[in-house]
Nucleic acid binder design. Structure first.
Length: 647
RNA sequence: GGCGGCGUAGCUUAGUUGGCUAGAGCGUCCGGUUCAUACCCGGAAGGUCAUAGGUUCAAGUCCCAUCGCCGCUACCA
């Protein structure tokens, strides 16, 4: 016997800063569907997921929650794992970057790279912004100043370790160019090549001294290993990689067949990660698939908007399989997808309750009604029967083809096409008419056999997407899961055996009623979130702190767009001082110059000047962030004189 | 500003290397059916394939321009 081919698939590890929402949960469901499908096809699958638990942000969250970082990540990692389990995902291993073996291995990796010269210690010079605690490369600076705050950057006393990306640049470029499917979809590949690799890679800072919650560098305890080497290496430490000799498991499964990740972290997985592996002398992953995002309607989910949906809320209402089905069927493979309650209910009713659920229900019901549940031997195959069988074969091959390209919604659709074909077959053969004619008994038995066989096949085809439903169908058939390699044979069921009773798989939803309930709940959540967010906020300041900020009323006397920037407007203000003040403001998206000229605004007049896109900006004007996508400038009453102090 | 992508029926979208009357699902309307979860089946209406040119025997599919949207990057005091 030849061994099963292996298939190693991973999700990104989830950052343990907050409980993930349904958009964040898409990835694990997507990966699970692929893993289940591969297993059904006979692959020896290893499916890895887990959590990324270090970093400054977590240190801060833990501090404000009044717990240790470890206690904090334990809680959130537990929630994340809980969601993976709730969604019925079949990961083989759940790695945490705080796991002991991972930390030790990361330290070894770091040391190895250091000893062979791929990581070197260096110091920044003139590129550190103390208030921002950020390092900047020469090219990132704006007019020699911090691009974040516009303040002076200092020659750094701060030391840090760097990974030599530049050394491997050529090798990486060749790998990407010669492995067409390595970065997928295609558009991502172009982004990486054009924006990063071709312009030249900067060496990557891989350690920090500004926080403690991380894996210490063994030979230099002031340093903590920064996210890249820590998080990315989970894909190999989980399998038992060891610079001094790896496990059998590692040798078997590495390299990964595919890393499933969000489109926002493609860069880390297709540049930093391959270079780390090159430096370690290990093979590169075969493919990185950057999937799109799931949005709420048109918007990103955010707590303050009250449009965050969590997996558990959704499964409570619709059930686990319906949620999985929605995610998998509604997400396009290259563009962002969206979730709305309306769409969720529509999908549920039309695809699951009507098309699939009702098909199974009517088939089992007829078998019981006409033959007391006893499966009849198929006799003669008519043209319609052959068409049905051909449709099954097509569904199988379409499913396969689409999954190979990560077109999961098309894969799901291929299965639904077959379910619809089955419903049509019932109309074509009219079993209820056959049942009235005793001489058609054999024909009726054959027709029902074909239908039972079809839903048996459907059960297998939907099983990667809706595993529980697949089981339920088999239970109603009183049959074991169909063997994948004989799935198209159309003879998996045994004549003479009995099917079970028909139980609806999905109960139709009263859309109007449920929608009203859900929207009411959402409103509530929004209010609660807004009430809760207020007190959290940022640290309190004293009145003296506030008085350091000089606010003045000023009139916009002129305004024009800045050519090189699409978000910036250049405003000329009369602040009562007699000399016009120039301010650049990132509000071009919401205001045109004519909207502003003649209006009175509030200007922060004692900000240090900064240069933006070639324009020197002296101060900033106040505006409200109404939402992530809407900004409104604060306009003053026209009777307020220019230069009036505001406090 | 640089690089890339997209604009197809009311909505969500398929359309491989250019080739017969541009497909599908949802929604709408009409008809049929009754085994079934008021379900299923059939039919219809609805598309100047963003706009304007060009290449070609032939373009949603290639080229150019314009408009709009999006991604990455730069930038957003």
């Amino acid at each position: 016997m030849c061994e099963k081919p292996k298939f190693y698939i991973t999700t990104a590890i989830a950052y343990t800063s907050r409980k993930p929402h349904i958009g964040n949960s898409y990835e694990i469901v997507l990966t699970d569907a692929i893993a289940r499908y591969k297993r059904m096809q006979g692959f020896d699958v290893f499916f890895l997921t887990g959590t990324d638990e270090h970093g400054q942000k977590i240190e801060e969250y833990a501090k404000s929650a009044g717990v240790t970082p470890k206690a904090y990540v334990d809680k959130v990692a537990g929630e994340i794992k809980g969601i993976c389990d709730l969604l019925n995902t079949t990961y083989d291993k759940f790695i945490r970057t705080t796991d002991d073996y991972h930390e030790k291995c990361v330290q070894k990796i770091f040391k190895k790279l250091y000893e062979q010269g791929d990581i070197y210690k260096s110091e920044y010079e003139g590129l550190y912004c103390t208030p921002c605690e950020s390092f900047w490369t020469e090219s990132q600076l704006v007019d020699g100043k911090c691009p974040d705050c516009g303040r002076e950057v200092k020659p750094a006393k701060e030391e840090a370790y760097f990974l030599k990306l530049s050394k491997y640049q050529k090798q990486l470029e060749e790998y990407i160019e010669s492995n067409d499917n390595f970065i997928y979809p295609e558009a991502r590949k172009k982004e990486m090549l054009n924006n990063f690799i071709k312009p030249g890679l900067q060496d990557l800072c891989v350690s920090r001294t500004s926080f403690k919650w991380g894996i210490p560098v063994t030979f230099d305890e002031n340093h903590v290993i920064y996210v890249w080497i820590d998080a990315l290496s989970n894909y190999i430490t989980a399998l038992g990689y060891d610079p001094d000799g790896s496990s059998e498991q590692y040798k078997k499964y590495w390299p990964a067949d595919v890393h499933i990740i969000g489109k926002d972290i493609v860069r880390f997985h297709t540049i930093y990660w391959p270079i780390m592996l090159m430096a370690l002398g290990e093979p590169l992953p075969k493919q990185v698939y950057g999937h799109p995002w799931l949005l709420f309607g048109e918007d990103k989910m955010s707590k303050s908007r009250g449009n965050v949906i969590y997996a558990d809320e959704l499964t409570e209402v619709f059930g686990v399989d319906a949620v999985r089905y929605y995610l998998l069927s509604e997400m396009p493979h290259a563009n962002d997808g969206s979730i709305t309650y309306e769409a969720m209910i529509d999908r549920f009713n039309s695809d699951l309750a009507n098309t699939l659920g009702n098909l199974v229900n009517r088939t089992i019901a007829m078998q019981n009604k006409y033959f007391d549940g006893v499966i009849q031997p198929p006799v003669k195959s008519d043209a319609v029967d052959e068409e049905l069988k051909a449709a099954a074969k097509k569904a199988i091959s379409d499913l396969d083809k689409n999954i190979a390209e990560y077109k999961i919604s098309d894969a799901v659709e291929a299965v639904m096409v077959f379910a619809r074909r089955c419903n049509k077959y019932i109309d074509e053969t009219m079993p209820w008419a056959l049942a009235k004619d005793e001489s058609q008994k054999e024909r009726l038995g054959t027709v029902l056999y074909n239908l039972l066989e079809s839903i048996h096949i459907l059960s297998a085809l939907i099983s990667p997407f809706m595993p529980d439903t697949a089981v339920k169908i088999n239970e109603q058939l009183c049959a074991a899961p169909i063997e994948y390699n004989s799935i198209a044979d159309f003879n998996s069921l045994n004549a003479g055996e009995k099917v079970g009773t028909a139980v609806p798989l999905f109960n139709r939803i009263d859309a109007e009623k449920l929608l009203a309930e859900l929207l009411a709940k959402q409103e509530e959540k929004k209010k609660a979130a807004q009430a809760e967010e207020k007190p959290e906020g940022i640290a309190q300041i004293t009145i003296d702190d506030f008085m350091k900020v000089e606010l003045k009323a000023a009139e916009v006397t002129a305004c024009e767009p800045i050519k090189r920037a699409k978000k910036l407007l250049k405003l000329t203000l009369d602040d009562g001082s007699g000399t016009p003040r120039t301010v650049a403001s990132g509000i071009a998206k919401w205001y045109s110059p004519d909207d502003l000229i003649g209006k009175k605004v509030v200007v922060v007049s004692n900000l240090k000047p900064a240069t933006l896109c070639g324009v020197e900006s002296n101060g900033m004007i106040l505006a409200a962030d109404c939402s992530e996508t809407d900004v409104k400038v604060l306009f003053l009453d026209s009777s307020i004189p220019n230069g009036a102090k505001i406090r």
